[in-house]
Design a protein around this nucleic acid. Structure first.
Lengths: 150, 150
DNA sequence: TAGAGACCCTGTAGCAGGTACAGAGTCAAG
DNA sequence: CTTGACTCTGTACCTGCTACAGGGTCTCTA
């Protein structure tokens, strides 16, 4: 076997941290590689490609579970790929939903912002006053299926 | 003192779980309330309003840190509220960024989806093939400042 | 007055998807 | 033979909660 690389090199080539590679192994996305005499992980080309695949999925905001499913299909080349299409459609739907949520949020935030135009004393600040109101639209955004922008 | 309520009632009035109230106390967003003879937490109107404020901030996707800052200003009624406006503007910026990111993602996902129109055998599936490519646009989406849609 | 049930207490562990150490071992160069 | 760069395992931390376990308290009813 030639082309055997250690974990640092693999991480560099795929643009992630060494710890992340080990994390993916623990999570079963990467299979445990061969080891050197000194117990270092040794990776080949297949691992590099697989990790690229994973990182690509993650960069598309797919969860590790979705990624696992796609990897499973990648591992059975003769199977039908209909489910891959379905998974992707569903994910596109997730993202569309999240965009809609954030847009609604944006509208609300701008409305709130307009409550205080000039700088005031805080006790008269329209923003702080609005935030103290029980009403507002504080519905399901919280419990349901987060996301956050931070 | 009349109007003293216990934690369950406070939680119900503000639409959150009892555990969440205790969590906010641990995190310093709510100050430790008085206790009954039997060591139960007793809350007054000020606590109800403060918790409404917190929940309102959270429903607008602000972080606990941002919320903490706003609470601080709420606590000093004679101070100038310019920083409140700044914080809100910054938050609006965060959300706008996230929307832009997700829109770019959506474009990419649709492009990817178009790689496989009919159902195929997985080894020929354009989607799985594209995901294996090192290139693609897998840049800063990951390390920077996530969010996710799940 | 005793018991049932609804509430409350503290403390701890778990979720996703990593990140960031500590404390030890390995390996190549000088 | 030592230095420094790398690697190993294991564990704790991050956010913003949620969900117990194992106890205590209070109120209502029989």
């Amino acid at each position: 076997m030639q082309h055997q690389i250690k974990i640092g090199e693999l991480a560099k080539r795929t643009g992630c941290l060494v710890e992340t590679v080990r994390y993916y192994e623990r999570e079963g996305l990467l299979s445990p590689p061969a080891r050197s005499a000194g117990n270092f992980r040794l990776y080949g080309n297949a691992h590099v490609e697989r990790l690229h695949f994973i990182r690509h999925c993650r960069s598309l905001d797919m969860s590790l579970d979705e990624t696992r499913v796609l990897l499973k299909f990648r591992d059975i080349p003769e199977e039908n790929c209909g489910e891959v299409n379905l998974l992707l459609d569903k994910h596109i739907g997730h993202v569309a939903e999240r965009i809609a949520e954030l847009k609604a949020l944006q509208t609300e935030l701008k409305q709130l912002r307009s409550q205080c135009q000039s700088t005031n004393v805080t006790k008269n600040c329209g923003i702080l006053q609005s935030l103290s109101n029980a009403d507002g639209s504080m519905p399901k955004n919280l419990g349901t299926h987060g996301g956050g922008c931070h």
